[in-house]
């Protein structure tokens, strides 16, 4: 399958501003940093989560707790026989989110299935007082009743589109790109 670059949704300059705005919204919507835990979804949400935590520290002078969660063992598509995903690290501060305000962070919100899995995974670490969802890009086309509370960028996409957040931490150039899948006859179909 070949991906054709359609357009850049967020470039490097805009990305910094978007992350700062998400950080401010996170502060506004959580009741105090002491009770806040940011949790990035492995892999795409982890770096974004750290950036938001850094931006919060710049504004507030104090860094919120942060962690990461891997959803491999909570996915709903295991029985589809898709290629095996490799388990990543899960790290929740003090192994507990009981009574906390949790902000779950991911790069791209699409079908909502990843978020469903992440919620199940999170809830195995206790009963939080509240969970919010923060995403860099909401590309629509939900398959589950999930909505984000903090959104960096909204875009309407079709089923042939792929949205990639290419952050420096994972070898990218700090931009979010909208791609289109090419499925002409020479490709042999996907």
């Amino acid at each position: 399958m070949q991906l054709v670059n359609e357009r850049i949704l967020i470039d490097a300059t805009a990305l910094g501003r978007v992350v700062r705005r998400m950080a401010v919204e996170t502060i506004e919507k959580s009741e105090g940093l002491d009770n806040l835990v940011l949790v990035g979804i492995h892999t795409g949400g982890v770096h974004l989560c750290e950036r938001i935590a850094n931006a919060i520290e710049e504004v507030e002078g104090e860094r919120p707790n942060s962690g990461r969660i891997d959803i491999t063992l909570y996915r709903d598509d295991a029985f589809l026989g898709l290629p095996r995903p490799v388990i990543g690290e899960t790290r929740i501060p003090n192994d507990s989110i009981a009574g906390k305000t949790v902000v779950l962070v991911d790069d791209v919100l699409f079908t909502g299935r990843t978020v469903r899995a992440a919620l199940n995974a999170l809830l195995d670490f206790g009963r939080p007082s509240k969970i919010l969802l923060a995403v860099l890009v909401d590309r629509g086309r939900r398959e589950l009743p999930v909505q984000a509370d903090i959104v960096g960028y909204n875009v309407t996409t079709g089923p042939m589109h792929v949205v990639e957040a290419e952050l420096k931490e994972s070898g990218g150039t700090d931009q979010v790109v909208l791609y289109k899948r090419r499925t002409d006859a020479q490709e042999g179909g996907a």
Partner: peptide
């Protein structure tokens, strides 16, 4: 072993969005 078993069975009961769901997850 369980993942390999499911792969070998190769069931595609997830409808047209299964590939997208996979990509969102990775």
């Amino acid at each position: 072993v369980n993942q390999a078993r499911l792969e070998a069975r190769g069931v595609g009961t997830g409808g047209p969005t299964s590939v997208e769901a996979m990509e969102e997850g990775t």
